[in-house]
Simulated assay, not measured.
Amino acid sequence: MMFRLLGGVQVETADTSITIESSPVRGVLVALLLEEGRLASVDHLLGSLWDDPPDSARTNLRLHIARLRSQLALASLRDRLTTYRGGGGAYRLLVDSDEVDVARFKKLAALGFAELRSGSLTTAETILERALSLWQGPVGQGCTSSQKLRYRFLAFDELRITMRDRLVAARLDMGRTTDLIPEIHEILAIAPYREAAWAHLIRAYYLGGDIAGAISAWDRATATLGDELGLDVSPGLRHLHVSVLRRDDVAVRRYVDCLRSAGDIGVQAAPHGARGREIRP
């Protein structure tokens, strides 16, 4: 049994797979699943579907709930969607966290980050690879959603980038170097303002024996972060650059960026990797 939100909205059982066709019904299902079995008030669901709910919003929501129940019935899951009448009304979709791919995604991310903090790099690598294998595309594709709900979707994109970023860092610490450069470039193509990824690129070139490549990566990092975003690079990245210029192999190898030493899985708001307030799935 699996509710899939990563790359499409589907309900899968051992016997059948249901694709939710209606965009607003998908939106309701996604909003309920993101609550991971908690009550979702009618007001919360209205605010998840519309930035400015129309006068007919409550009636429309009841229709969408009825259609969702009909879809769930195809997989013998109709009774999972319960209604609460008090306090303005609420709904709950009864699910276990292991039945929702985004919940598994977050759980594995937290486990992988914990292993990184403990220094268990091989175990962390395995767990983060499992988490990333769940990703089939962004959350909420093709569903009706408000800006508030889309902001929650963005948190999963950011969490994925953070996992990829920390996985690269772990592999650098495990001795891999230039073979990681294509992956780092992919991260930077998505998140060009992510300072940690620039640090990984500098280290990958340097530890792979390409000093000129490391210096060029520094130049591109400062141009991107400074000229385009107007940010000063961090003291840590400057220290890494000095270590490269001094050919200080030990300092480059021991470099630890702020993301890898962070104690939580919150990820930073747009632009990707820029300094800012945290958002959470």
Rank of each mutant, 00 (worst) to 15 (best):
A110Y: 01
T178Y: 01
D165W: 06
R104E: 08
F153N: 01
G213S: 04
H200F: 07
T144H: 14
D157I: 04
E195F: 05
M163Y: 03
W198H: 15
A214G: 00
Y205V: 00
I181H: 05
I211H: 10
G119C: 10
C143W: 04
A114C: 02
A114Q: 14
G208M: 12
E186W: 00
E125W: 08
W135K: 02
S216M: 05
L159A: 11
Y206E: 00
A212G: 07
L201K: 02
R130K: 10
L149G: 05
L201E: 05
I161N: 11
S120K: 15
G175R: 11
E183R: 08
R104S: 07
E99K: 02
T144V: 14
Y193G: 12
A217F: 04
T162L: 14
R176A: 14
L159C: 03
L111N: 01
A197D: 14
L108H: 05
L188V: 04
A196G: 06
T126S: 13
T123A: 10
F153I: 05
L201M: 09
T122D: 10
A155R: 10
S145D: 14
L132T: 08
R176N: 10
I187E: 05
L93D: 14
Q136S: 09
I184S: 02
R164W: 06
D173N: 10
T123W: 02
A155H: 09
E186H: 07
I187C: 07
A217L: 02
D157V: 01
W218G: 00
D157G: 03
L180Y: 06
P138Y: 10
W135A: 01
D157T: 03
L128K: 13
P182R: 03
S118G: 07
L121A: 08
I202A: 06
S133I: 01
A191W: 12
L159K: 03
D157L: 11
L207N: 04
L188S: 04
I184L: 01
R166S: 10
G140R: 03
Q147A: 15
G175N: 08
E158R: 15
P138A: 12
I211P: 00
K148S: 15
E99I: 03
A155S: 15
I184K: 00
T126C: 03
L159D: 08
F156D: 02
S146G: 04
E183A: 11
R164T: 03
I184Y: 02
K106W: 09
L180H: 05
S216R: 09
S145K: 13
A109S: 14
D179W: 00
G119D: 04
I211E: 12
R171L: 09
L207E: 12
I202G: 00
I187V: 14
R203Q: 15
E195Y: 07
L172G: 10
M163R: 08
G209W: 12
S97D: 14
A212I: 08
F105Q: 06
V102T: 15
W135C: 03
A191P: 10
S133R: 10
E99W: 02
R150N: 14
S97K: 12
I161M: 09
L159P: 00
I190K: 12
L128Y: 12
S97W: 13
A110D: 04
R150E: 14
H185V: 09
R150H: 07
Y193T: 11
W198E: 06
A191N: 11
T177Q: 13
